[in-house]
Amino acid sequence: MKTLYLLRHAKSSWKHDVIDHQRPLKQRGLNDAVLVSKHVVEQVKAPQKIISSDAERAMTTALFFKEAFKVKDEDFTTNHNLYDFGGRQVLEIIKNLNDSWKRVMIVGHNHAFTSIANMLGDEYIENLPTCGFVKLQFDEKNWRDVNVGKTKLTVFPRHLKTKEDE
């Protein structure tokens, strides 16, 4: 059995004069990363590996989850191919994961992550929001064989906020 955690980066800021790849999180994104990571760590087992896009906003988001799950440095890595908005490269990464890993978290971008969640899960998600988390579970023993699994959990920041938080 394989479990995949998909995490879209938290809300980024557009007020900095930097290239897209270097855009940081805005304060709301930082707050959401804390909120969602604290909630998710109570709901699921820690991933054995976290692989993040090397874009600033994705790496920063991933680090909140790394800390919350107490993932070791050697079990955290970045992959430039997760800086993908279509999904083909993301799917290739998933299919080539090390089969010794049962639980993996990948952190990246839309529209790729909404597409992958819908392609590999059994529940339709119209749009995976910023800092949205999805847990997918597969019966397969090898990552290359994963196809349609079960969407076991979705956590979006808006599910965890009260009206006063927004």
Rank of each mutant, 00 (worst) to 15 (best):
A112N: 07
L25P: 08
K141L: 10
Q22P: 06
E140R: 10
D145T: 12
V146P: 13
G87Y: 07
G121D: 03
E42F: 15
E126M: 12
L128A: 02
V71E: 00
H39E: 06
K70A: 04
V36D: 00
K163F: 01
H159R: 13
F156K: 14
G86H: 11
M59A: 13
E166G: 14
M119C: 15
W143R: 08
P129Q: 06
Q48S: 06
G132Q: 02
R88S: 06
F69R: 03
R158A: 14
V41I: 14
E164M: 00
N142I: 13
D139Y: 11
V18K: 08
S37G: 02
V18G: 04
V40D: 00
D122V: 15
S52W: 04
A112V: 11
R23I: 09
L160H: 03
E67L: 13
P157T: 06
F156H: 08
S53W: 03
E92H: 14
V148Q: 11
K72V: 13
I106P: 07
M1I: 10
K102P: 04
D17W: 14
I19T: 12
K141W: 10
N142M: 11
S100T: 11
P157L: 07
D17S: 12
E67F: 08
L35M: 05
I93E: 07
Q137R: 15
A33I: 04
A68H: 05
V146C: 13
E126T: 10
R57W: 06
V18R: 10
V104K: 03
K150C: 12
V40S: 05
Q48C: 07
Q48T: 07
E126P: 10
H9N: 01
N79L: 00
T162F: 03
K141C: 10
C131L: 05
K72D: 13
N147A: 13
V36C: 02
Y124E: 15
Q48A: 03
E67M: 05
E42A: 15
H109C: 01
W143M: 02
F69V: 02
R23L: 12
D20W: 13
D99K: 12
V40P: 00
V148T: 12
N79G: 04
G121C: 09
Q48K: 12
I51N: 00
R103E: 01
K135S: 12
A46M: 00
F69W: 06
A10Q: 06
I94S: 11
K45N: 09
K2Q: 04
L153F: 07
I50L: 03
R57Q: 03
S53H: 00
V44F: 01
Q43R: 15
A10H: 04
S13V: 09
G86K: 12
T77V: 02
I50W: 02
R57V: 05
K11W: 04
D17T: 15
W14M: 10
K102S: 11
H39K: 15
A10I: 04
F65M: 06
